[in-house]
Design a protein around this nucleic acid. Structure first.
Lengths: 294, 294
DNA sequence: CAAAAGCTTCCGATATGCGGAATAGATGGG
DNA sequence: CCCATCTATTCCGCATATCGGAAGCTTTTG
């Protein structure tokens, strides 16, 4: 980041593709790899409709021949797909397969999937699995409950500033001391308007969460909505993820809250156990290896 | 110029690792974009453990400085992550967020998620959502039922040759005529040993599936296992996906099969309806737009 | 049917990425 | 504790792969 300003005046007017607001993260620097990735990101942001070559060209400020060449490579590699009919490009399915493995340390996602299902069935609310990524929390998976609520954290792959939301707090509270400090320092300015803005209060909250073992507050982001989250700990007691429930406040009243917390904690512990499947003797993991998908 | 040919001119000669058959999928050609993507693929295949710089260097036959530079870019762009402690690289979470959008035409995945859940709960078996990708079917999503069965199609992102398995057949049967012919021509050789090898029989099967509206056979791949699948159709009556159930044969006997098929068809129709949310008058799709995840 | 916009190919100039070699850092063994 | 080995990182000159202007070709628009 920083310092790119390629001095391109950007011609601005163009206007029509209301698609990606603000973002427009400039071309992508210099290397063709960066440019290729920039194209992928652009495609991701316009996957609803797809993007045409010239759209990309304009948005990224690259010449059509360049975009054409890069797209050709991306398509050959399966990272993008061209709809020959409409001349629109979309992200390729290979990319999807690729990323099924991504952000999945220790197969966290796979391990949690059945647990999320169980939880959403039991609690009847939507359950989120969040992991830390830098200064954000990322939604790794989600399992919808029957109740029609949508947290803005909602989409899989979506990010929130660490510290905003209960899941985030649960993770924050169980980070290494120094990491937490770093996050707080970096994130406080980012939380303006969407989260806690007072450092003292934030620290109080974190201490409380650490103490109780769960985070639960009316978020204040959406009136009437509440959340409760517990951390998923590694064997050193540090957060690797969080399980979070988002629902309407009435469903997390004094009566029900302890029950929910209890269930969440139990499941979180189950996950932790699976994360460290480590039998002093037979410490061979799932390793089915061998065949390979060829 | 259909150009679909993934076979590249391949110049072969370069030669150093020409010897090793299998694995080692060559560096990735020439462009740095290709090399970068090759690295990502390698990381995906070794995400369990992570890969070190020299591992990558050797596996892809690139010099360490090159790998180092590319990795640096990938890390900066969030596509890879470096574990500074172990010196190992893994896929980055950004990639995951990226791909959450991928291979998701019309938000098929999002639309189907609750339906898969419902189905797996109702039928108590594992439900697969497959889409076509070139000459393969790709598993877009999966919802595990209580029964402990695993189809080899299992993993999200996994691919099967179109024509192998019931889901595949369901898709095949409802492709455009010409597309189907193309697929058959291309895939027959690929199905040796893992699927139907007789063209006449394959065509009979397809006709049958088309006629019945579902595919169901003991796959023969795993004795005792069966599958049943229905296509998900677009408004022209062509397959965009398939819903598939994999389970033990006993659970798809004459008595239960019709029930299952019926349920699947109903859900498939529900998906189709959502895919074409198109009211002659108010033909504005789901477009909630605006906010964006920012 | 003409005009415009978009897509693709070609090609020369040059910036970009490449890899050999040398440095710094980590790891392990004697 | 020090040395040998392996790995990661930096540097730099050379060459290649990439870029973009221009022009041909195709599709859409009016």
């Amino acid at each position: 980041m920083s310092a790119d300003t390629r001095s391109k005046p950007n011609k601005g007017s163009g206007g029509e593709n209301a698609g990606a607001p603000g973002s427009l993260e400039e071309a992508g620097g210099k290397s063709s790899l960066q440019r290729g990735l920039a194209i992928l990101r652009l495609l991701a942001s316009s996957n609803e409709t797809g993007a045409r070559l010239t759209d990309i060209s304009r948005a990224l400020d690259l010449t059509p021949p360049t975009v054409h060449r890069l797209l050709k490579i991306l398509v050959e590699e399966g990272m993008a797909e061209a709809d020959k009919a409409t001349k629109r490009y979309r992200l390729g399915i290979d990319l999807f397969g690729l990323a099924a493995q991504a952000g999945n340390p220790n197969n966290l996602r796979d391990i949690c999937r059945p647990i999320l299902l169980r939880l959403s069935a039991t609690l009847r609310d939507t359950i989120f699995l969040l992991v830390r990524s830098g200064f954000d929390a990322v939604c790794l998976d989600r399992s919808e409950g029957p109740f029609p609520i949508r947290s803005f954290t909602g989409d899989i792959g979506g990010r929130v500033t660490l510290g905003v939301g209960q899941g985030s707090l649960a993770i924050m509270a169980f980070l290494h001391e120094e990491e937490r400090e770093e996050v707080i320092r970096f994130n406080l300015p980012r939380m303006q308007g969407v989260g806690i803005i007072d450092e003292v209060y934030l620290r109080t909250e974190i201490a409380r969460v650490r103490d109780l073992g769960y985070a639960s507050r009316s978020t204040g982001l959406l009136p009437g909505m509440s959340g409760v989250a517990v951390p998923v700990l590694d064997r050193d007691g540090h957060a690797v993820a969080a399980l979070s429930v988002g629902t309407i406040s009435e469903r997390l009243n004094e009566e029900r809250l302890p029950v929910v917390v209890d269930i969440l904690k139990r499941e979180s512990a189950a996950i932790s156990r699976q994360l460290n499947p480590f039998d002093p003797v037979l410490r061979r993991p799932a390793a089915i290896l061998g065949g390979g998908p060829a």
